[in-house]
Design a protein around this nucleic acid. Structure first.
Length: 745
DNA sequence: TCGCCGTTTCGCCGCTTCTG
DNA sequence: CAGAAGCGGCGAAACGGCGA
């Protein structure tokens, strides 16, 4: 404040040295004033503590009130040096530069003595920012490069090519113009003095003449743009002026790097707005984004969420990253190149494959794009030497819709049971850009080839039953399976079956998911227009009994009776009883061998659980390459689990597959869903008194079957029509009155 | 007047910022 | 978040001062 006040008074009483918009400062730190003026002047400081001008001692402003008037005296007998003495904020202005080229800096001791600072180059008078530690390289061999982007003071330094790269070509934060034009020098000269010369001239800063305003503006580099800047007022309303600075850096680019020479001190504040991130700052930012890929720009700035609340913030790295838009862009630059089209993608994809050799087992690129991946461990799990006990043989296939960011892309997964891990493990994982039969065909082709490779490796015969599995009733998936099966065998030299025979054989290897059927039954049982509420329970029981019909006759008669009793569901019955669906689902209609039928699971629940596990492990909505990399890590996870178990290291506490025991006890794997679940009976404590009809009148009243077509409100036959007019937004009152009526009568 | 050398200006490219 | 607009940085040509 004090400094600002003096500056303002000075600007008021003393005519500007330059034109009305400019204050020119010499490159050595002093204002361009005559010696005679200096000899009788009080130095004026900017907020960094450096002199920006002088006030003559006999000026009327001396006699103003507080702060007390400064007195000047000559301190050095050799050179006329001005010192500031008297009561002042010495902690801020205790070090300062006087004069032009032969500058001396003094500091004041607590006792009040003034002591010259011996090395002005190293101890500069900036109060607000720490200048670059500028040393001539030859004097400090082996010194580590330190480049903060704010070169200041007089110095020369050599930078090696590595150091130049490391500092982004010695990028600086000062607003500056650049100049080249040296036609003599050679970029690859053997001596730095013969190198290509370029210059950087500081543009100073823009500030306004309001003493209370602390805004500093970065000047534009184009003259026209700078003029436009100066025409506009400061955001405080005051007039802007250009505080020029002529500090120049000269860079000689030669064969071994850059020889850097800085000509003097910046006598103005640093422009608060920085433009560049230095490479080390970029690396820190990159590390944070890599560590928290799902964290958005705003969270990165506020602090990435941690256990104890927001943690490290990118704003700690550089002020540049306080700008949310800039953070967005920098983040995009990191995230996008790998996943956007063009050369970037090809390069990234090639790198991905190079780093994980053999992981991609089949890739089809084009309108139908399918990329299948598998590790050797996954392949080894696809064939079992013997049939396992229980319905855990064969493979389970399904598509996950949430894995990829692109909504039309799917992750197809075929899993097999691993008896060592007591869980299903992925066998083949495929990226597909759609869900057509052709997409599924390529996926299953990869699956069959993998199975065949593994069987041949173990000297087992490649036979149809190795490919048996369960899937849902997607027409495309079924078609894809059959086509792939036909293609696979047709390409093999040892196959002598016709396409029709192969198609027939493929149909015998498919089992449909009974869970999908059960879910369908439950869904239609709730369509009261087709199944009246009182018959819903009966309908579910009879429909499910179709699964266990002893033979085709019994199946047909049960179906006919169902169709008679629920005529609106004829289409639904027809769909399920189509031969292609019925053979996959109903025991009496199956074409599959009975042994195989019992050996493979009845549902794709294992696969649904696998999807859940994948999402929990790596999240959803992955970009292409990042998603593939995640799949690789998941494959590695299973492999590690397997090798741990083989060595006797426990990979879980307690019992494996606890859900099996729970299923026996409760009839289903989630105790809460059991018929007589205590959980269902228990009232959730919502902290409110019992105020619902169900709680007040008992569940029977609340559960009265609704008449078809009525809205789910209270039965009007009990209450009768309301005897008061409905007013706008009076629902709260209406409800209360209804409740009162019900509880009192 | 010419040539040398430093400074200024201009155009392009790519990065940064703004806008919807 | 994407695309547009603005801006900075670089390289090179043009310009200008100065001495021979």
């Amino acid at each position: 404040m004090v400094l600002g006040f003096f500056k303002h008074v000075y600007r008021y009483f003393v005519p500007r040295v330059q034109d009305k918009d400019e204050v020119e400062i010499s490159r050595d730190g002093g204002a361009l004033l005559s010696d005679s003026f200096i000899a009788g002047a009080v130095p004026m400081y900017d907020t960094t503590g450096r002199i920006i001008g002088y006030v003559q001692t006999n000026h009327p402003f001396q006699n103003l009130g507080s702060p007390k008037i400064y007195r000047l005296q000559i301190y050095s007998p050799q050179r006329p040096v001005l010192l500031l003495v008297g009561p002042t904020r010495i902690e801020n202005a205790s070090k300062f530069v006087i004069g032009s080229t032969n500058e001396i800096i003094y500091t004041r001791t607590p006792e009040g003595h003034f002591i010259p600072i011996q090395n002005p180059e190293e101890k500069q008078g900036h109060a607000q920012h720490k200048p670059l530690d500028t040393k001539v390289k030859e004097d400090f061999p082996g010194a580590e490069v330190h480049w903060d982007g704010w070169p200041d003071g007089k110095f020369e330094q050599d930078f090696t090519l590595d150091e130049v790269n490391e500092t982004n070509d010695l990028a600086i934060h000062w607003a500056h113009t650049v100049g080249g034009g040296d036609r003599k020098g050679q970029r690859f000269a053997e001596e730095w003095m013969n190198g290509k010369r370029a210059t950087r001239t500081c543009l100073g800063i823009l500030q306004c003449d309001n003493q209370d305003c602390e805004i500093t503006i970065r000047p534009h580099t184009k003259p026209q743009s700078l003029r436009t800047q100066l025409l506009k007022p400061c955001s405080c309303g005051a007039m802007l002026y250009h505080l020029k600075c002529d500090v120049k850096s000269i860079l000689w680019t030669w064969s071994k790097g850059i020889h850097y020479q800085n000509s003097g001190y910046h006598v103005h504040r640093r422009p608060p707005r920085k433009l560049h991130l230095l490479p080390q700052e970029k690396r820190r930012f990159e590390a944070m984004v890599n560590a928290h890929p799902q964290v958005g720009p705003l969270q990165l700035i506020v602090g990435v969420p941690g256990i104890d609340g927001p943690g490290e913030s990118v704003a700690d790295i550089s002020d540049v990253l306080l700008n949310a838009d800039r953070v967005t862009k920098e983040r995009q630059k990191l995230k996008r190149p790998a996943d956007t089209g063009g050369d970037h993608f090809i390069r990234a994809f090639a790198k991905f494959e190079q780093e994980r050799p053999g992981f991609i087992i089949l890739s089809t690129i084009g309108k139908v794009t399918v990329i299948s991946v598998q590790t050797p461990f996954m392949q080894s799990q696809m064939v079992k030497d013997e049939v396992l006990d229980g319905p855990v043989n064969g493979m389970v296939s399904d598509a996950a819709h949430g894995w990829w960011k692109e909504r039309t892309s799917l992750l197809m997964v075929s899993s097999t049971y691993c008896p060592d891990l007591f869980c299903w493990v992925p066998g083949v994982l495929s990226f597909t850009n759609g869900a057509s039969g052709e997409h599924f065909m390529y996926h299953f082709l990869a699956v069959f080839q993998a199975i065949a490779h593994e069987a041949e490796k173990r000297h087992l015969e490649v036979e149809d039953r190795l490919f048996a599995g369960v899937m849902d009733f997607s027409q495309a998936e079924r078609l894809g399976f059959i086509t792939a099966f036909v293609e696979f065998w047709y390409r093999r030299p040892d196959s002598n079956r016709s396409r029709e025979e192969l198609q027939d054989a493929a149909e015998k290897l498919l089992r449909g998911c009974a869970e999908h059927f059960r879910a369908g039954v439950t869904r239609v049982s709730r369509i009261t227009g087709a199944v009246s509420p009182e018959k819903a329970e009966d309908f579910v029981k009879r429909a499910m009994s179709l699964l266990h019909a002893a033979d085709t006759d019994e199946f047909c008669s049960r179906l006919a009776l169902l169709a008679r009793d629920f005529p609106k569901l004829i289409d639904w019955f027809n769909w399920w009883s189509r031969p292609s669906h019925a053979m996959m689902l109903f025991g009496s209609e199956r074409k599959m061998d009975a042994d195989l039928w019992d050996a493979i699971p009845a549902t794709t629940n294992a696969e649904e659980a696998m999807h859940w596990k994948l999402y929990r492990a790596c999240g959803r909505d992955h970009a292409f390459l990042e998603g593939l990399a995640s799949l690789y890590q998941i494959a590695i996870y299973y492999e590690r689990q397997y090798s741990s178990v083989k060595k006797g290291v426990p990979v879980r506490y307690g019992e494996a597959e606890r859900w099996k025991r729970i299923a026996i006890t409760y009839g289903c794997t989630k105790p809460g869903r059991a018929e007589n679940s205590q959980d269902k009976k228990r009232k959730r404590n919502d902290g409110r008194p019992p105020d619902t009809a169900k709680e007040i009148l008992g569940s029977k009243t609340a559960k009265k079957p609704r008449k078809s077509g009525l809205s789910p409100t209270l039965d009007t036959s009990i209450l009768g029509p309301q005897s008061y007019p409905w007013n706008s937004n009076s629902c709260w009152l209406d409800t209360s009155l209804q409740l009162l009526y019900m509880t009192c009568y």
